[in-house]
Each structure stands twice: as C-alpha cells, then as structure tokens.
Computed example of a mutant assay.
Amino acid sequence: MLGRVLSARSLFGSDRPGFCLVTFALITLMLLIYAGGIQASLSVGPGGYFPRFRDVFLYALSHDDSPSLLISVVLLLLMGPCQERRWGSVAFLFLSILTMATLSFIYTLVLFVGGGEASRICGYSATQLALFTAQCRQATQRRLLRCLPVWFLPWVYLLGGLLLMPGTPALLHLCAICIGHSYHQPFIGTLQELEETRVFDFIPNWLYVPTSTRFRLPTFATSQRYCKSITLNF
C-alpha cells in the first residue's frame, strides 16, 4: 500500500521547497471576485458579444454560483501545489495565464469553423484541466496504482466535470485537453528560464517555489570561501 502511495506522489508531487504563492494568489482572487460580486464571462462564437476588458482577464477566475467556485477551489488546492512544485512558481504562473488566453481564442475559433452557436464561458475548471493534462503528459510512469493509465486521467477529469457542472461546454474541455498536450517539456523549460530575470531577484526564496536553487545562489560565496581559506593558511 505504501508503494502505491509513493507511486502516486511521484506522479503528482515534487520535492522542491518553497511556498506555493501562485496557487494561494489564484484561490484568493477567486474568493475575492465572488465575494465582491464581480461577474466576468466571455460570450464567444457566432453571434457572441464583444468582450469587455475586464472579461478577458477575469473570466477564468469568475464563477456564477458557489458550487462551481467550491469545485474550482478544491481542485486547485489538490492539484495546484503539485503542479507549482513540479514546474516552479514562475513557469506555473505563465502557464496559467497563457492557458486562460489561449483557451478562449481556440474555443472561439473552433465554434466559428464548426458553425456552432455562441457559448458563454467562465470558471477555472477548463484551465485546470489543461494544466492537469500537461502534468499527466510529462509523467514518466505509465500507470497510476498499477491499474489506471496516466493518459486516461484527463478524460476522467472531463467526465467528472460534466457530471458535477452540466452547464460547462464539453467542447471547451476538449480544447483544454488539446492545449495541455501541446505543452512540451522544452517549452516549459523556456518558461522556467524566465526565473533568471532580475524581476524575481527581489522576491525571497521562501516566498515561492524556485525551479532550481542555482538561479538564486549568491555569486560571492565562492570568493568568500577562497579568501577565508587563504587567511587560515597564513
């Protein structure tokens, strides 16, 4: 039994230290937006309305009712820390923002090409599904608990989401799975390298999950040790 738990942990977890700042920030924004009564959604496809500036940036963090908000918060609590520790806070942040922007664009394009009707979208479930698909795609293990193929987990997520949130468009979640499969490791590695920019030098290591400690090591450590060794020798 312990081996199965460790197997699941190796698939969905990571040993990187640090505080999951992005996960905490996303949950806080969802709760504040809902408590403040801010309604943001996108009406995409043929006959849809031109989006407002607020809707473009907040549609994925806005929820119509408390059950959908509860599901998004629970899923983010379960999966967010695992994904943030696997990719690092910087890459996780950029993947989340990129998914929110790309998902609405691709879904709109699919509706226009397929001749579908206008569809209203909001909530974080589709964005979380895309990130979960990318996480499963990068898993080195082929099965979870020796019985369930890893590639099948996003589809279980999709079926569960349709049962718990019947009003969510199934085609939107299919687009999310496709987006998640497009996140290859070289692309995620490029996002992780953004951590080297000077913007993140002002953030303490403990406040977020760094991709690697080598990005935040002080440059003067080696020279100080060398000077101390010379002093001791004399």
Rank of each mutant, 00 (worst) to 15 (best):
F132N: 02
L174N: 01
A126Y: 08
P154V: 09
W155K: 00
C175R: 12
P186V: 05
V156F: 01
Q185I: 05
P149Q: 04
E117K: 09
P186F: 02
L153P: 00
L159F: 00
S125P: 08
P186W: 02
P186K: 10
T168K: 11
Y183E: 00
C122P: 04
A134E: 02
L174V: 14
C178P: 01
V156I: 12
E117L: 06
H181Y: 15
A176R: 07
I179C: 00
V150W: 05
R146F: 10
W151A: 11
H173K: 12
Q138K: 00
F187C: 14
F187A: 15
I177L: 01
L158K: 01
W151F: 14
V156W: 00
E117C: 05
Q185Y: 06
P169S: 07
A170D: 06
T140F: 08
F152E: 00
A126S: 14
L163I: 01
A118I: 07
Q135M: 14
T168H: 10
F132K: 01
I121K: 09
L144H: 06
G180K: 06
T168Y: 03
G167K: 08
Y157I: 02
R143I: 04
Y183H: 07
R142Y: 07
W151K: 00
Q128T: 13
T133N: 04
Q138W: 07
E117T: 13
R137T: 11
L158F: 03
G123Q: 11
T140E: 15
F152N: 00
F187I: 15
I188R: 04
C175Y: 08
A170P: 06
G123D: 10
T140L: 12
G160P: 05
C122M: 11
L171Y: 03
H173S: 06
Q138R: 10
T140W: 06
Q138T: 04
V150G: 00
L129G: 05
T168D: 11
W151H: 06
